[in-house]
């Protein structure tokens, strides 16, 4: 087995609001191995972005433990070492708000270089040129442009270059393509895959697009209401999904031909919507929408069980192994 680069154990992130406690992330555990892409899938409001934001240090976790290599991630950015900030980077969902509209692209790429220095070559300009070339933006054309004058895909390329600037080993990709046109999505995804190979990067890839996940991820983790319900290698995930929620998600992928339809697991009608994380149902949080609901489901929250090597599920159907 390859080296474990990040380990998350029972991570909790609650937000305390006037309406009550929002249990955005509730005892989430998973590991990420070096060089792989872990896909984190879930509906809007399932807490997948909160997981990423907590791991990279925007929020301080309410409880639980997380480690990057052997450094603890229990503080937010203000309490983290420079080395952690260099190693863990993020590409945000909305490239429109992740680039300062008053900074030229050169200034945007300069900041991480200023803060962390570039060990290999001292010449910042050379490094910036190199970064822009990496993301396939001709430097002579883009260096002095401002984010407001370039398109969404180009902005996301700059955001990727900015994440790469510190020569990180881990990048969280928070729905990097969801705000972009489909034609540009493919380009960004291909670029990310190429960069991963080239620099031996580890990705935490967050999306709600399952087809994208299939192309991108080695392993997939499904989140529902702040909890992980199933973790599986991508192939298993699509071929033998276990959790009823996973089945529901898979059968909701739109298909064009009958051949494709046959590839999918048996049709599960998706019903209901994700409940509010302020008011999480007792027992298994999915029981309100589950087609295979049993009496125990509304009382006891199931535990995570490993069915096969690397394939774990949190459901009473599999509780006895």
């Amino acid at each position: 087995m390859t080296e474990e680069i990040m380990r998350v154990e029972g991570l909790i992130k609650h937000f305390f609001t006037k309406q009550g406690t929002v249990r955005a992330v509730d005892k989430v555990s998973f590991s990420i191995f070096k060089g792989e892409t872990l896909g984190l899938v879930g509906e809007s409001g399932s807490g997948k972005t909160t997981v990423a934001h907590t791991l990279i240090g925007i929020y301080e976790p309410t409880g639980g433990k997380a480690y990057f290599k052997d450094q603890s991630l229990e503080k937010d950015y203000s309490g983290r070492s420079k080395n952690l900030k260099k190693e863990i980077r993020i590409v945000f969902q909305d490239p429109g708000s992740s680039l300062n509209p008053r900074w030229s692209i050169k200034q945007i790429l300069e900041l991480p270089l200023k803060v962390h220095g570039t060990p290999v070559n001292r010449d910042q300009m050379k490094r910036i040129t190199e970064l822009l070339n990496m993301v396939e933006l001709p430097p002579e054309e883009y260096l002095y442009k401002y984010p407001t004058t370039i398109g969404g895909g180009e902005k996301q390329m700059v955001a990727i270059a900015r994440a790469l600037a510190t020569d990180p080993s881990f990048i969280a990709l928070d729905e990097p393509t969801s705000a972009l046109d489909v034609s540009i999505q493919a380009k960004i995804i291909n670029l990310l895959i190429r960069l991963q190979k080239k620099f031996d990067l580890t990705y935490l890839f967050i999306t709600h697009d399952l087809s994208l996940m299939r192309n991108m991820a080695n392993r997939v983790a499904i989140m529902y209401l702040g909890k992980i319900s199933e973790v599986a290698p991508t192939v298993d995930f699509f071929q033998k999904p276990l959790h009823p929620y996973t089945k529901m998600l898979l059968s909701s992928i739109p298909v064009i031909s009958d051949d494709e339809e046959d590839l999918k697991p048996k049709k599960v009608i998706s019903r209901g919507e994700i409940p509010s994380p302020v008011n999480i149902p007792p027992g298994c949080s999915f029981h309100l929408r589950c087609p295979e609901k049993m009496a125990v489901c509304s009382k006891i929250d199931p535990e995570m069980v490993e069915i096969e090597e690397g394939h774990t599920v949190r459901c009473h159907l599999y509780a006895d192994g």
Partner: peptide, 13 residues
């Protein structure tokens, strides 16, 4: 709470 401010913070500015 814009992402570009978060990013500068996370970078270590």
């Amino acid at each position: 709470n814009e992402y570009f401010v978060h990013d500068a913070e996370l970078t270590g500015a």
